[in-house]
Amino acid sequence: MSISTSPDKLPRAEEILEPSPGALLRRRAFKHYGFIIGGGVLAFIVLMALTAPLLAPYDPYDQELTERFIPPIWHAKGEWAHPLGTDFYGRDYLSRTMYGAQVSLMIGFTVMLISGVIGTAMGVAAGYFGGRVDMVITFIITTRLAMPVILVALVVVALIGGSMEVVILVLGFLIWDRFAVVMRSTTQQIRNLDYVAAAEAAGCSVFRLLLTEILPNVVNVLIVVATLEIAHAVLLEAALSFLGLGVQPPTPSWGLMISEGKGHMFFKPWVISIPGFALFALVLCINLLGDGIRDITAPENRN
């Protein structure tokens, strides 16, 4: 067998210079400021949460009643021993903020997993099968949308008793609606494409078809929704904890820290501004990352 060297058999110059899809994706990612900033800050917060047991200067539960309400270092009376100050019980605010990241990320991620599985299963089923299945699932989604999330979550958490597990389960079973809605319409689009028809003609079982033809092609959209839903769950947890019906004290949740500090905010505004801005930064960078992933993976439907 001889290797052909004739010019028309060799790849043309444009084809060699054409970057691979992966390289294109990377190139777009590095040019997208939202993606870089969002990803960077998120990585920092995740790192902060993971290294909290090693790097936090104090135990977040340790009360020191002689050191109550020390202001953060940007105030004149701040001390380097407590860079972000202390709260009403003299607990170190930096340590509590770091551990608070653990609570928010943990809840955001697990709620997203639960609601993602429920919503995706319903959305893909409705979009693929259509007809009666679609009608029933659409009705379930409509019903779920009519139920006020915060109110129902508050009532159920109050009746069962607040704890991190309860908050995760309640939110997970409540906020699957966006997954279902988006997955339904995405699957409807893919369902009519030729390769799905080809797989059907080849005698693929429905289960296999959903798993190997449909799912891999909705993954991009799924990642975007999942990112945005983490942010949604983080905000909801903070609101529930703020109202006293989420994560229970003395756990360092950012929403709870704002709730505990609000009685003192007039004279010691940092007790609410530090956890508040932490929450804001986390949600903002998750949203930036989500929008970034959408722009990078599907730049054609940016508008």
Binding site: A238, A239, I272, L279, F280, V283, N287
Partner: peptide
């Protein structure tokens, strides 16, 4: 719009009060 979406409503309310 992005910043608005990321601001927790209860924190925003407290800032407005302050």
């Amino acid at each position: 719009a992005l910043i608005g979406q990321a601001f927790p409503s209860f924190f925003f309310a407290l800032i407005l009060i302050l």
